[in-house]
Design a protein around this nucleic acid. Structure first.
Lengths: 113, 113
DNA sequence: ACCTTGCATAACCGTTTGGTTATATATAAC
DNA sequence: GTTATATATAACCAAACGGTTATGCAAGGT
């Protein structure tokens, strides 16, 4: 489990998405998170580590408990990429449009000749 | 490389995101895509396979060429999840708010007593 | 007919992933 | 001081990932 701190990779795992869903609603300790899943405590620990490494979760230690808080503004990286791709996609016919307009003009010229 | 056909996992890989970026702008054949990367043709083939399996790319065979077209509406699954999580996140203080309001009312009652 | 092109597929490989159990450590409770 | 709790860490594992090379094969070009 190397430090990749990549938001896209962090949310690729369904368990981590669920964890973020829980934490979006309320800040929880690690054990409270683990109660919602059928995986061991170390497994949750690792998921939280990955989420903190890419800034999606922030931890506040309080005694022996660690409160995990979601920081969903980091998801901007994702929505930003999606939006940019969608923008390209919506404009993808422009080239074709220009080509068709050129073709039409050409035909009109041929017709008037 | 098993069939997971999961959009989140598909866009987790940076190369696949770049491929989608290219295809968002224009439909390309597999070889044309490969020209933009320093990886082998089979590697691109595999990426395209994953992207088609989750509906992010559609292929139209034309002779021996296969045109790859982006289908970015499938990214709704991603933006949908993000939006839902953000909604939860924005409302996460409501519980706390209610608690504080209750507390305030209680204090007022105590004060007037 | 033969060669070339555009791809898919198979076999393989090192690394990463997501999980486990066992163990350590620091704080809290008794 | 002893015990219980909350979590981290290490060692390990099977499976998946992302890549490779080698090969096959159908469609086009000559």
């Amino acid at each position: 489990m190397k430090a990749r701190r990549d938001v896209f990779q962090a949310i690729a795992d369904p368990t981590r998405r669920e964890i973020l869903g829980l934490l979006a609603a309320e800040t929880l300790t690690l054990n409270k998170i683990a109660e919602n899943f059928h995986i061991s405590q170390p497994a949750v620990s690792k998921h939280i580590k990955i989420l903190t490494e890419c800034g999606l979760v922030e931890i506040t230690q309080q005694g022996r408990e660690r409160y995990c808080e979601a920081r969903l503004d980091q998801l901007n990286e994702v929505t930003g990429w999606v939006e940019q791709s969608r923008k390209l996609w919506n404009h993808r016919f422009e080239k074709l449009d220009n080509y068709l307009i050129d073709l039409q003009n050409k035909n009109q010229n041929d017709g008037t000749k």
